[in-house]
Design a binder for these strands. Structure first.
Lengths: 136, 136
DNA sequence: ACATAAATAATAGCAATTACTATTTATTTA
DNA sequence: TAAATAAATAGTAATTGCTATTATTTATGT
């Protein structure tokens, strides 16, 4: 299962097992969209009311290190989602709730080599909009 | 000239002429790349050492309102550049110094209509890398 | 030159994130 | 199983990027 694979990735990177980390992974795996740190914090507080916001920040940074999460910016704050980094893809993102839909078109497919004066290291292609649930 | 056109745009939006605004516009027009608020602040302080950081923030927001600047996020902070909003385009951006190169390929050209469940409102396509000056 | 409406500077405030430190917990090894 | 250890956590403080407030100064129309 997804969460166990992620937990194993963490172990491979030298991070210990904790219940809170497992719960955080479950939160991410149950949502098909990006979550802000505060949203994760609100959700995990339902199960662990004494958890520190700091712990959420820390664990998210460890998850990133272990390549368990992918991240982007939404309305000026960092948001995260369960990574499916096994295949290259882009997203349609609901700017209201963070819900995503994967798209497999990549604009880099039609760009060959490095442009003069630049060495390419990465790219970002995101489509923004409203999902049906958030449409007025 | 570029700066004068921008100054006129400001006037059209009801903003007054000031030397500091003109100087800020000059700073943007002299650089082919994105600048952070702090970078603009550092540069303009050479001419107006008593200028407030707040004024730089305010004027930049007015410049945005008058569509004189375009913006993006670079390493988690907002950066701005002189706008060429007359034609739709994307950028190759040096993540080190913010230098940009315009590209006229748009990935949306090959995407027709709205995907099921989403109403598209916008998109972002940016290529990142190092410019020759910043390459090690 | 005067009136007035906006620009500026200085300061305070806020939200997101990071840093620090003492305590607690998970895992290693005896 | 129990002690040793290294890391995780909570609580708090500090930092950063940015916005809001207000008194003073400046640009511009009459």
């Amino acid at each position: 299962m997804e969460v166990e694979v992620a937990m194993q990735k963490l172990k491979d990177h030298g991070f210990k097992y904790t219940q809170k980390r497992e719960k955080m992974l479950e939160i991410f795996s149950n949502i098909n969209g990006y979550l802000s740190v505060k949203e994760v914090y609100q959700k995990i507080k339902q199960e662990y009311p004494t958890i520190s916001l700091n712990t959420v920040y820390l664990n998210i940074s460890f998850f990133e290190e272990a390549e368990v999460l992918e991240t982007t910016d939404l309305n000026g704050e960092k948001v995260y989602r369960f990574s499916c980094a096994d295949h290259h893809h882009h997203h349609i993102i609901c700017t209201e709730c963070g819900k995503v839909q994967v798209i497999n078109i990549c604009p880099m497919d039609s760009i060959f080599g490095n442009p003069p004066g630049f060495t390419i290291t990465g790219h970002k292609f995101e489509i923004y909009g409203y999902c049906d649930d958030c449409k007025k």
